[in-house]
Simulated assay, not measured.
Amino acid sequence: MPWFKRTEKNIITKTEDKKDVPKGLWHQTPTGKLLDYQELVSNNYVSQEDNYHVKIGSKEYFEILFDDNNFKEIDKDVAPKDPLKFIDKKKYADRLKATQKKTKLKDALRTAVGRSKGKEIVISCMDFAFIGGSMGSVVGEKICRAIDHAIKKKLPFLLISKSGGARMMESAISLMQMAKTSAKLTLLAREKLPYISLCTDPTTGGVTASFAMLGDINISEPGALIGFAGPRIIKDTTGKDLPKDFQTAEFVKEHGFLDFIVHRNELKDRINLYIDLVLNRAVRK
């Protein structure tokens, strides 16, 4: 009987193309928990099963932090170039175009201005989807412009870091952003305007070695990876076993590099509380 034989004509859908669950409806955490995607979204992308904070980008953070997701993006047309004509496996310029098309982002950071709990704030947020959230000339420039805007309008500044570090395709130009952004933050401090640094998973490399650790208040989400070099490199360099939970937010806080660890559902309230305290203004409920 031909219907008992697996011939090419019998197979309508190839085995490798079959999916038991439509893509996007479920999410699996690193601990193996399978989550309903809509429930995950309604809980700010945090698993109620194991408290795992799913990696999200600027779109989601803006939705969480700005009142009614109402904000104005500034400097959104600033885009990277390829001054070094860098070529690895492919041209950097071609990779930029492909990444911009895929992510609908100009680069690895967006800046927006809007109200959070009724008060205006400037928020810059990194996007890991854009070449690992790597810090290039555009990231540094947009951070500096965001600080200039905060100074001009006398507004607090929040920077959300999520990065693998400096962008190697821009070489020394990328590394220069560490000094550039750090110097600009000094001007913000002179104006006595609060800067809150939020470290998310992961915050590593030159980002950690510059603006991510320079906040008036440094905070993080639970379980975030925070460090300079990766654990494997450190272990190979030192030749020693690393402590348990090394480079997690909890480990970093215990050793004095963070002020607080904040659950994503409490981010908006806690950030505004810190700003109110720094500016000595009435706390908003």
Rank of each mutant, 00 (worst) to 15 (best):
P243F: 12
S124D: 11
D127K: 04
F257H: 12
L273R: 00
A93R: 00
K154I: 02
L158S: 03
S134T: 06
P202Q: 01
D201V: 10
C144Q: 04
Y274F: 15
D107A: 11
D20Y: 15
E170T: 12
D216G: 02
F130Q: 06
I11L: 05
K76V: 09
R110K: 09
Q38V: 05
T238R: 06
G136V: 10
K89S: 09
A112Y: 00
G230C: 07
Q177P: 08
P194G: 13
K76Y: 14
S174T: 07
L242C: 00
K285N: 04
M126P: 12
Q28Y: 03
T200F: 09
G223P: 03
K244W: 05
D216V: 12
S197F: 05
F246E: 05
F62D: 03
L40Q: 12
E141P: 06
E254D: 14
D50P: 00
V41G: 12
A108V: 01
P231F: 04
K104E: 15
S124I: 00
Y195D: 08
K91I: 06
K119F: 12
M213Y: 00
N44S: 06
E141R: 14
Q247H: 07
A112D: 03
T248C: 03
L242A: 04
W26H: 14
V122I: 03
V252L: 02
N265A: 07
K33E: 08
K285W: 09
